[in-house]
Nucleic acid binder design. Structure first.
Lengths: 185, 185
DNA sequence: GCAAATTAATGATTTATTCAAG
DNA sequence: CTTGAATAAATCATTAATTTGC
């Protein structure tokens, strides 16, 4: 809405970008038919990969990482680097928000006399927030043991130092094995 | 069109969510739970208050300040003055470390935006940004001369405005209003 | 069943802090 | 004291989900 845009130039309007054609929508994969270049509408595969990366610990990818991810994800449909950047920003913030909300609920319940509802809400936490567990489609190349133990000692602040990982989607559709091997090491 | 280029120079960007809530005692080493008197295990509230104080500019609390903080924080669980002292020592040092590492990393990224090796150091530190800041619940009051002189002993980067302050947690009603009004002089 | 209307999610922008270099 | 860079917070805006009346 503003022409100020000093950062990346928003050229979402022009149909041009990213030869990746349209989205191969699987479920929510947007762009049903006509190229409605309103805003990026990620495909289910794209979301899955992004979510796996997030769960593996990635929070604020570097520009290089963003480009690699974007490049790989372009296989599944139209995507730009900025989409990846925004996705991580939003996802990080909103996960934090969810976690905080739930924690406040837990706190309220605990401080109250009885906490009969605690399990219920604990379950909600599991549902709402993304557990940081490694899924089978995500292969983590282990850190060295020292740092791993160090990492475990910091549960409070969501700190992660995942280094190298590759993300491969299992029996999904026809797609190449993603190898987002972002060598952080 | 910057299509061909890597596009997306992160200049002015942002995204995110909201941050209103409060943390919650998770693994509180609190006074109530099992008395595992190994070492201090701060509750989430204690960490929150300490972090807020840190963000408000406090770096090296005086003995009086330490005692008052400790006294107030004892509401949330077992705590001793030395815990507060060590917390500030450690937090100050670690924040400095983090900042230093990040800034080094930034330099590396600038030198070679498209340098594939830059990501080498990147991931290691990307997610190390300081946790969320909370300001709305923190009120600052003017400082006096003693603190001013103390301030001068800090490196420039830490010469923030350190003041007398009170920390009131407004939205979270289930604990008393902290009034950490530390009187210098 | 089906769209219009409404609500929930979430992509994208803008604004404010923060640190530190000059 | 000013300014550059990075990012979190807050907000705007658009799309998908869903509800609802027919």
């Amino acid at each position: 809405m503003d022409e100020g845009m000093s950062g990346f130039c928003i050229k979402t309007a022009g149909g041009g970008g990213y030869g990746g054609g349209n989205n191969r929508a699987s479920t929510g994969g947007g762009g049903a038919g006509g190229t409605k270049c309103g805003r990026w509408n990620p495909t289910a595969e794209q979301v899955k990969v992004l979510t796996d990366l997030f769960r593996s610990g990635l929070r604020t990818p570097t520009t290089d990482q963003i480009q690699k991810i974007s490049s790989q994800l372009s296989f599944y449909g139209k995507i730009e680097s900025k989409n990846v950047f925004y996705w991580f920003q939003n996802h990080k913030a909103r996960e934090r928000l969810k976690r905080r909300r739930v924690s406040v609920e837990e706190r309220d319940l605990f401080d109250g006399a009885d906490n009969i509802f605690s399990e219920k809400h604990a379950g909600e936490l599991e549902q709402l927030t993304e557990p940081e567990r490694v899924v089978e489609t995500l292969q983590l190349f282990p850190l060295n043991s020292y740092e791993e133990s160090q990492k475990l000692r910091l549960p409070r602040s969501e700190r992660n130092e995942i280094r190298t990982f590759s993300c491969a989607m299992e029996k999904e559709i026809d797609h190449p094995q993603l190898d987002l091997r972002l060598s952080f090491v």
